[in-house]
């Protein structure tokens, strides 16, 4: 028996097994995600969650979002662009998935700004300054206060609101829903309840377009 031929064959068999494993595993996790949404019921959209775009839009993007997450930061302009270009047919619902240390604090600061109607400006400033305050080794979410100081917030009120039990309770609800929906990484997207199983910007766009296409049909 030719030893070299055997070796090449063995590498081929292992590579094929690996690829088959990837296909099976992805398919299984995709099914689990769909089942989690079906079982979760109203875990996707809660009344307390911030909404961007037309509240009555027919297509809803739910994003499990972490203010410290670099990929969430990179996706933000894309998602905002999809909503803005949809003529009111697409809305974004933000749910929190504070997976990094310090993210829970960042969420509370943003929610405090929301109570004064400055949520989206505060979110954009916090994301713009993310490299400054969200270092993984040394997160300093309190620096967000400096980033959002020029949004015209009543800072004393905002600092008090950030400690409010209502904001903490809403965050706990988001974390519970994140676990129920098996969101393990951010950003976690659902479009009209369909999980984005194949992650990517083009894939998100395609999923939204599929849902938009359904609107045209009776």
């Amino acid at each position: 028996m030719n030893r070299r031929g055997l070796m090449v064959g063995a590498v081929g068999v292992v590579a094929l097994a690996f690829i088959a494993g990837v296909v099976v595993y992805k398919d299984r996790t995709a099914q689990q995600a769909v089942q989690a949404v079906q079982a979760g019921g109203d875990a996707l959209v809660r009344a307390h969650a911030p909404v961007f775009g037309n509240p009555q839009a027919k297509v809803t993007i739910v994003e499990f979002f972490d203010p410290s997450c670099e990929t969430c930061r990179a996706f933000y302009p894309l998602v905002k662009g999809i909503v803005n270009a949809s003529f009111g047919q697409v809305r974004l619902v933000v749910r929190y998935a504070p997976l990094h240390p310090g993210s829970d604090r960042a969420v509370k600061i943003l929610e405090a700004a929301r109570l004064q109607g400055q949520y989206w400006p505060a979110l954009e400033k916090a994301l713009a300054d993310q490299p400054r305050w969200a270092s993984h080794g040394n997160p300093q979410p309190e620096l967000i206060w400096e980033s959002i100081a020029d949004t015209g917030l009543d800072m004393a009120k905002a600092r008090a609101d950030a400690e409010s039990p209502a904001i903490a309770a809403a965050l706990q609800q988001d974390i519970a829903d994140m676990q129920a929906l098996k969101v393990r990484a951010t950003p976690g997207f659902f479009v009209n309840g369909r999980p984005l199983t194949d992650f990517g910007q083009a894939q998100l766009r395609a999923l939204v377009n599929e849902e938009l296409a359904k609107l045209g049909k009776p």
Partner: peptide
């Protein structure tokens, strides 16, 4: 070598996939 190959593929599967 086969054992090492399988273990390497398995470790990469657990980590990357």
């Amino acid at each position: 070598w086969l054992v090492a190959l399988a273990a390497t593929a398995g470790a990469l599967f657990l980590g990357e996939v």
